[in-house]
């Protein structure tokens, strides 16, 4: 009890009160700022539908088509060019124009193997209502794939708002081609957001 009385008698001066409050304020202010800073640095990644997406076209060769990726299972005939006029649609679902390009990723059979000679050419041509836009062509010279454009990618082309373009797929095999041989091509469609 006596100790409590002594404590009660201690007069807290205004300056010391202010100092305590100032230190507490600095502490709280700094903590608040740190939390706010961590909030601003917290990225949020939301899964959403791609703005440029694939969809099945009338001459779809078969395979799976989803919004962001597709797998086409096309055929190739010996000594005859097979054309899928509208193999795949590329839809711009946004209300502003976006640029995109085709970019080569991989191909099998690999360069230098005898199986490569089972094809003369596989061409991916991008078209719109005005006609041809660009293409990514795979032609065969002996047992090697030759890419055109040589850089393995097209230029960027702007697809207008709500525009629908399509990919025309052309395949050709030599007369000596072996039936049942499969070629897998992976192409990326790069879209500028």
């Amino acid at each position: 009890m006596r100790k409590l009385k002594i404590i009660k008698n201690i007069k807290v001066k205004k300056s010391s009160k202010f100092l305590i409050l100032l230190l507490a304020s600095i502490l709280v202010g700094t903590a608040n700022a740190a939390i706010f800073y961590s909030l601003t640095m917290q990225p949020q990644v939301t899964v959403s539908t791609p703005i440029i997406k694939f969809s099945q076209a009338p001459d779809h060769p078969g395979g799976t088509v989803s919004d962001a990726w597709c797998c086409l299972t096309a055929k190739s005939y010996p000594n005859a060019t097979l054309t899928y006029e509208k193999a795949l649609y590329i839809n711009n679902t946004d209300d502003t124009a976006h640029s995109f390009m085709l970019r080569y990723v991989s191909i099998t059979p690999a360069n230098g193997t005898a199986d490569v000679a089972n094809w003369n050419s596989i061409k991916f041509l991008v078209c719109n209502s005005s006609g041809y836009v660009c293409s990514l062509n795979f032609t065969v010279s002996s047992n090697y794939w030759m890419l055109a454009p040589s850089g393995g990618q097209t230029n960027y082309y702007s697809i207008p708002a709500s525009g629908v373009w399509w990919i025309r797929l052309e395949t050709l095999s030599p007369a000596t081609a072996t039936k049942g041989t499969v070629c897998n091509i992976q192409i990326a469609v790069d879209v500028q957001q």
Binding site: S25, V28, G29, A31, N32, I35, L39
Partner: peptide, 10 residues
């Protein structure tokens, strides 16, 4: 009240 703001942010 200021500390409550901190809690708010947390």
């Amino acid at each position: 009240a200021a500390i409550m703001g901190f809690g708010h942010l947390v």
